[in-house]
Simulated scan of single mutants.
Amino acid sequence: MSGRIHSIDTFGTVDGPGIRFVLFMQGCALRCDFCHNPDTWDTAGGRQVEVEDILSEIEPYLPYYQGSGGGITVTGGEPTLQAPFVAKLFKACKERFGLHTALDSSGFCDPTHAGELMSYTDLVLLDLKQLNPDKHIRLTSQPHDRILKFASWLSEIRKPVWIRHVLIPGHTDDKEDLSLLGQFMGELSNVERLELLPYHEMGVYKWERLGKDYPLAGVRPPDEEEVKRARRIIEESARSVGTAHA
């Protein structure tokens, strides 16, 4: 079975535990204003590979992944668009190398499409962009109904999740929106960690190279105090839901 990929990072340290092989899949249905990989959007881009091709790329670095408690993370783009390929890859990584597997996803996926994939996935890094429905559409071009359904399904099947949220001043840092995120997290039974990712401009050059106007031009990254404030709001809101359910 073949898949379409964008690129590979053999020494990832921020996409799950330990040192990781990070595979960027090609194709995404969202059009996030802050995307730092807009060159992954086109489903016809990238290059076509077989599972064995990826296993051959992984093998020389196995001592680093295994010795650090790391593994493989598949991201994108949106990896669930190629769920059958990723499922086969994860299955092979587990059977041949005993690797920990992580999926970095927006959650824009029908659960019925991801059943087999989840059976070989140890951890989901779930990117929740914005809980306000109107703001989510403005920020990503798509509604978030499917994303919330996918997140709730992951909770039902007890799949370990790290919630990721990109903190963008003026776009995703409103107190009400952060409270909504915390409340939603508090309703889930499987959240192991919250990763607040400060907005950055490192992908702007890719927009320029593609001839696209960058929608967030002039938006500054949040400072340390703003990140601490956001975390406090989210965690307090999540705890309030947990207390209410106790």
Results as ranks from 00 to 15, higher is better:
residue 38 P to G: 02
residue 41 W to R: 01
residue 41 W to V: 01
residue 44 A to C: 05
residue 45 G to K: 01
residue 49 V to T: 01
residue 50 E to P: 00
residue 50 E to T: 07
residue 51 V to R: 05
residue 53 D to F: 01
residue 54 I to L: 04
residue 57 E to A: 05
residue 57 E to D: 03
residue 58 I to R: 07
residue 63 P to Y: 07
residue 63 P to S: 08
residue 66 Q to D: 03
residue 67 G to M: 05
residue 68 S to R: 06
residue 72 I to N: 02
residue 73 T to G: 05
residue 73 T to L: 04
residue 74 V to R: 00
residue 74 V to N: 00
residue 75 T to M: 00
residue 75 T to F: 00
residue 76 G to R: 00
residue 78 E to Q: 06
residue 81 L to S: 04
residue 83 A to L: 01
residue 84 P to N: 01
residue 85 F to Y: 03
residue 88 K to Y: 10
residue 89 L to S: 02
residue 90 F to A: 03
residue 91 K to I: 08
residue 91 K to P: 06
residue 92 A to W: 08
residue 93 C to M: 01
residue 94 K to Q: 13
residue 94 K to W: 12
residue 95 E to D: 14
residue 99 L to S: 05
residue 100 H to M: 06
residue 100 H to R: 11
residue 101 T to P: 11
residue 101 T to N: 00
residue 102 A to M: 03
residue 104 D to E: 12
residue 105 S to I: 03
residue 107 G to Q: 02
residue 108 F to I: 04
residue 109 C to R: 04
residue 112 T to N: 11
residue 116 E to H: 07
residue 120 Y to I: 06
residue 124 V to T: 11
residue 124 V to S: 00
residue 124 V to L: 05
residue 130 Q to D: 10
residue 135 K to T: 12
residue 137 I to L: 15
residue 139 L to C: 10
residue 140 T to A: 10
residue 144 H to Y: 12
residue 144 H to N: 15
residue 148 L to V: 15
residue 149 K to S: 13
residue 149 K to E: 14
residue 149 K to H: 13
residue 151 A to M: 02
residue 152 S to T: 14
residue 154 L to T: 06
residue 155 S to R: 04
residue 157 I to G: 12
residue 157 I to R: 14
residue 158 R to I: 09
residue 160 P to M: 09
residue 162 W to Q: 07
residue 163 I to R: 09
residue 164 R to I: 02
residue 166 V to E: 04
residue 168 I to R: 03
residue 168 I to D: 04
residue 170 G to H: 15
residue 170 G to Y: 15
residue 171 H to G: 11
residue 172 T to M: 04
residue 175 K to P: 09
residue 177 D to C: 12
residue 178 L to Y: 09
residue 179 S to E: 14
residue 180 L to S: 15
residue 181 L to M: 14
